[in-house]
Design a protein around this nucleic acid. Structure first.
Lengths: 220, 220
DNA sequence: GGAAAGTTTTGAACGTGTTCAACAATGAGT
DNA sequence: ACTCATTGTTGAACACGTTCAAAACTTTCC
C-alpha cells in the first residue's frame, strides 16, 4: 500500500518543519533533516525535489491553518474594519512560530522559479485559498462594501496582507508589537477610506484606480 | 601605492557586473568571476566579503545612475504627476539591463542580513540617495504639494517605487510594457488622490494615515 | 641594501544543496 | 512460487559559496 511511502514523506516534512521552527532555516540542512528523520539524504529528495519544496509544505500548512482560525475569528464580526483586522491578525498568528525564519521564507518565496512564490503557478491553490479568506471577509461585511469595489477588493486586501507580512518579517519589536499596531491602525483606515467612495470627486479617482488595476492585470 | 589594489577591486567588480548582466546571477559563480578576471577566488573575497557584496556594488552603481538621469528628466517638468513619472520611469530604465537578474537581486536584498537590504544599515547611504530623488521630485513640483503631506510623501513615494520595482521584476511582458503602463497610470492617480486632501471628509482620513505612518515608524 | 611590517594573492579545504547510478523492497500477473 | 516492473532507498559525487593558513609581493625604516 501507499501508506508506507506517505509515512516517510510525512516524517521528512514533520522533521523539517520542526527544525525550521526550532533552529531556523539555514541550520536546518538537508543532511540534518535526513539524519533526524533516520533516512538518507537522497530519500528526502525522492519526496521533495528541493529544500524549497519543504518550505512550500510549510506555506501550505500555514495557509490551511489561517483559513480555519480566520473563519472562527470572523464569526459575529460585522463591520469591514473588524473583519479585516480579524483576518490580518490571525494571519500573523499562524506565521508567528516561524518569525525568525520569515526572511528566509520570503527570500525563497520571492523567486519566480520557486514553488512557493505566491504569484506563481505552483502555489495557485494556496493563493486561491488565501484569497477566499479575504473574499469572505468582504462579502460577509455589513454595511456592505460598494458594489463596484466588491469584485477587486479581496485581491487588493490580499496584496495588503502581503505587505503586512513583509512588514512583519522585519518587525523585531517584542512579539511583533508594531505589526499589530499597524494592523489595528490600517484596517479601520481602509474601511473609512472605502466609505469615501460615495463622495463625487473621490468616486472618480476610485474608478480610475480600479480601471488601472484591471488594465494592468488584463495585459498579461 | 593604493592604485594597484583599487585596480584589482575594480576589475573584479566590473567583471562581476558584466557577467551578471550577460549570463545572470546564478551562472556567475565566484570561480567564474575569478577566472574571467584572472585572479584567484580568494583574492576576489579579499575585496568582497561575499557574493552579496558584489550585488551591493551593482545596487550602488544603479542608484548613482538613477540620481543622474532622474535629475535630467525632472528638468522643466512642473506637475507632480509628471515628476513622479519621470523618477519612476528613469528608475526602471537604469534597472533594465539587469531585468533577468531582478528576482535574484530582490531575493538577496530582502534578507535583513544582506548588505543590499534597502531597509538595512549597510545601504543607508544608497537609500538616502534614492530618497533624495523623491524629495526633489516632491519639493520641485508646482502646484505645491499640501504642506502637511510634504514631509512624509517622499518616503511614501519611495515605498511606491519599491512596489513598482517588485512589479517590474515579475513583469515578463516585452520591454516590461506593463510596468510602464502601471507607472503612467499610477503617477497621475497619486497626484489626483493627493489633491483630494482638501476635501473636508477626506482630509481627516489623510491625517489618520499620516498619523499611523508616524506612529508605526516612531516605535522602532 | 636589507630586515621587518604590512598588504595582496593563492589554492586547497569545508559544508552546503542537489544529482544519480546502483541497489533493495514491494506488488501484480501468471 | 516466481518473474519483473514499479516504487523506494542509499551514499558517493558534483558544483557552489566561503574560509584560511601560507606564500608572494610592497612598503617602511634604519
Amino acid at each position: 500500500m501507499a501508506a508506507k511511502s506517505e509515512q516517510t514523506r510525512q516524517l521528512v516534512a514533520d522533521v523539517a518543519l520542526k527544525m525550521f521552527r526550532e533552529i531556523g532555516f539555514e541550520k536546518t540542512t538537508m543532511r540534518a533533516i535526513a539524519q533526524e528523520a533516520g533516512v538518507s539524504v537522497g530519500n528526502a529528495y525522492y519526496y521533495f525535489a528541493s529544500k524549497d519544496e519543504l518550505v512550500q509544505e510549510l506555506y501550505i500548512q500555514v495557509q490551511d491553518e489561517h483559513a480555519v482560525v480566520a473563519a472562527e475569528a470572523l464569526e459575529g464580526v460585522q463591520d469591514l474594519a473588524g473583519r479585516l483586522k480579524a483576518v490580518l491578525h490571525t494571519g500573523v498568528d499562524v506565521m508567528n512560530p516561524y518569525h525568525q525564519f520569515g526572511s528566509d521564507f520570503i527570500a525563497t518565496a520571492i523567486r519566480p522559479t520557486s514553488p512557493v512564490n505566491p504569484f506563481g503557478e505552483a502555489s495557485t491553490a494556496a493563493r486561491e485559498a488565501s484569497l477566499a479568506i479575504f473574499r469572505s471577509a468582504v462579502e460577509g461585511s455589513s454595511p456592505a462594501v460598494a458594489k463596484k469595489l466588491r469584485g477587486d477588493l479581496p485581491e487588493l486586501l490580499w496584496l495588503m496582507y502581503m505587505g503586512v507580512a513583509l512588514f512583519w518579517v522585519y518587525d523585531t519589536s517584542e512579539g511583533q508589537r508594531r505589526t499589530r499596531k499597524l494592523i489595528d491602525g490600517a484596517a479601520p483606515l481602509v474601511a473609512r477610506g472605502l466609505s469615501l467612495a460615495k463622495i463625487p470627486g473621490v468616486s472618480k479617482v476610485f474608478d480610475d484606480v480600479l480601471g488601472l488595476v484591471r488594465n494592468v492585470k488584463a495585459d498579461s
